[in-house]
Design a protein around this nucleic acid. Structure first.
Lengths: 119, 119
DNA sequence: CTGGATCCTATGCGATACTG
DNA sequence: CAGTATCGCATAGGATCCAG
């Protein structure tokens, strides 16, 4: 188990939104405006930056239609799809275990004057 | 593909160090000082905070030996181990594809006056 | 519709120093 | 050895406004 590889992956897509955008693209969102609306908590500025980074690493490919009302479509490349499947494991894990996680957190929170928690 | 589950996982262990610490624990590091030395870039302050969060969600279990020179040992719980396997997929992905990623980044960087890159 | 520029804030995290 | 407190900073990312 080489932790360096974990570090590398995190450096690539360990920010707040990259994995989510990859998931949304996999779900069929293609247009910039689609992503903008299906992930409301993500600001347009950050969406643009995130897509650019994903393009740079070859996860996402962009097609621009230079029409009068500009339109762009982003899609996962083969490389992006390969990463998607690893991300899906994380999502599946959460789906399977989030209830248990919440139970653990409650237990911990009710147990003592611990101090460090988070949301 | 429910992106909410991605979000949840990231909220749990999407910070800079959690997954790495889980990986290190899986590698047999147990003592606080082991972790401190095998992940030199991680400050002791943050190590403490990270371990506490991992304990709160039930990923890590702690045993303290109240000896004259205090000693603590942390280990992955069953829950933590279940998450580890999802993390291993990420690491495996990186191991398989990091070369290709670098090639893509180089190509991108040499191709244009793009502006947003990172490390 | 998409994108860039500016500004501003939150906060994650390191450095350091001190305690039992 | 492990933990806590204080400080300081870098940076991610939101809000807003302007532009093609």
């Amino acid at each position: 188990m080489d932790t360096d590889f974990i570090r590398e992956t995190l450096d690539l897509v360990g920010d707040k939104w990259s994995m989510l955008v990859i998931g949304a693209l996999a779900n069929g969102d293609a247009r910039y405006s689609d992503l903008d609306t299906t992930i409301p908590a993500l600001s347009r500025r950050t969406l643009t930056l995130t897509l650019k980074r994903l393009q740079r690493s070859g996860f996402v490919e962009r097609t621009s239609y230079p029409e009068v009302a500009p339109r762009v479509e982003d899609s996962l490349t083969a490389l992006g799809t390969s990463l998607l499947s690893a991300i899906q494991h994380l999502a599946a894990w959460s789906s399977d275990h989030h209830t248990e996680v919440r139970r653990q957190q409650d237990r911990y929170d009710r147990s003592a004057p611990h101090s460090t928690r988070r949301a």
